[in-house]
Design a protein around this nucleic acid. Structure first.
Lengths: 199, 199
DNA sequence: TGGATTACGCAACTACAGTTTCGTAATTGG
DNA sequence: CCAATTACGAAACTGTAGTTGCGTAATCCA
């Protein structure tokens, strides 16, 4: 009892996502027009709406394809592992860069996605799950480093992770400053070594 | 040569901002309709657009009125000062809570504002200036603590501030977890004391 | 008083997201 | 082959942001 009725044309999905990605990266979120995507893909609007119930859903799908879900390495050197991890997050953020946009280019796209997650329960649930999954990997990394004695026994892993990941998002969305490997190293140094005078 | 022609009716500004704030806090950003605001304020749409060229501009004005620009205290205790500072940022974020919205309520509004700043150069410039101004106060606070020996001489003030402020924004927008005084204290502790094993 | 200037209200208009209706095409199961 | 089911395309429709044109009201300056 699988797949009754006329099957979906999978080529439509592919064409639409490709065209939507091109429009979005070139003209930003606002420049992504359902009418235009449908026309360029040679499909009716109703066909698009059957797959993605809103423009937000389509945009999320487009961005999801841009985000390579990389492996997270545990080399035993917590500093190097965290830097690599943050660099991957930064790369994902930089990848949604919209050409025509001012202020640290990907800010607009990230902001729109946050707004989309707030507008639609399902998108919010989905993205929160994905973030939780990603965070769990980082928290496990931190926990292992704590167990083997690299990190202090009484650390606040959640605060530590929020600090580092948050700084990246803050930079991209608020200050518009670049996020790259050099910045990731500064973050890890500051977070690990602390800022009080040595005693 | 001041004020030629018919003067603007300032009561319109007041009524519009009040009504827009009510709509936005009750129904969220998407629930803020220019037509509805104009009707409830007893003004024509053109009158609104003369003051705020887009809905984004009106929304920014509404949120700006919600943000009390508090004083930042320098008591000589950097830990307490930072906690108070972060708590004020958190209060500002919590204040844009939109009733009808899922996921850590103010996430949607903050995301929309980030998107608005990316869509319009003037809004982007304005908000970045305001953030820079606020950050300068925090950076000065940190610098004074460094000079008087409370903080380490070689600290990275920018990274330190980004970490703490970023964690608040990250929580609000991404994980949807609450930001309050207790969380501010955890952040300051983690950031100041560091996370390496004590030597 | 009158002209220049700016604000206001009204109505019609465009653009785009999203919906609905309906006729048609492709597939499965009996 | 036939019925049920699902996909597709086309067109008309609604709602809202934003624009435009125009007649009118209020103010300043000469």
């Amino acid at each position: 009892m699988v797949s009754r009725g006329r099957p979906r044309d999978m080529q439509v999905d592919e064409r639409v996502l490709r065209i939507a990605a091109a429009l979005m990266l070139e003209r930003g979120y606002a420049g992504l027009s359902i009418d235009e995507v449908a026309e360029q893909a040679g499909a009716a609007k109703t066909t698009l709406y059957r797959r993605w119930p809103t423009k937000d859903h389509l945009a999320v799908a487009v961005v999801a394809r841009l985000q390579a879900d990389d492996e997270i390495a545990d080399t035993g050197d917590i500093r190097a592992d965290l830097v690599n991890y943050l660099e991957k997050i930064a790369a994902g953020l930089n990848r949604m860069r919209a050409a025509g946009h001012r202020q640290g280019p990907s800010a607009g796209t990230v902001g729109e996605l946050v707004a989309a997650a707030a507008r639609h329960e399902d998108i919010g649930r989905l993205t929160r799950e994905q973030y939780a999954e990603r965070n769990a990997l980082a928290l496990a990394l931190i926990e292992r480093a704590r167990v083997r004695g690299e990190l202090r026994a009484d650390l606040d892993a959640e605060a530590l992770f929020d600090q580092m990941a948050g700084a990246l998002y803050y930079r991209v969305m608020i200050t518009g400053a670049p996020v790259d490997r050099a910045y990731a190293e500064r973050l890890v140094s500051s977070a690990l070594e602390g800022n009080l005078t040595c005693h």
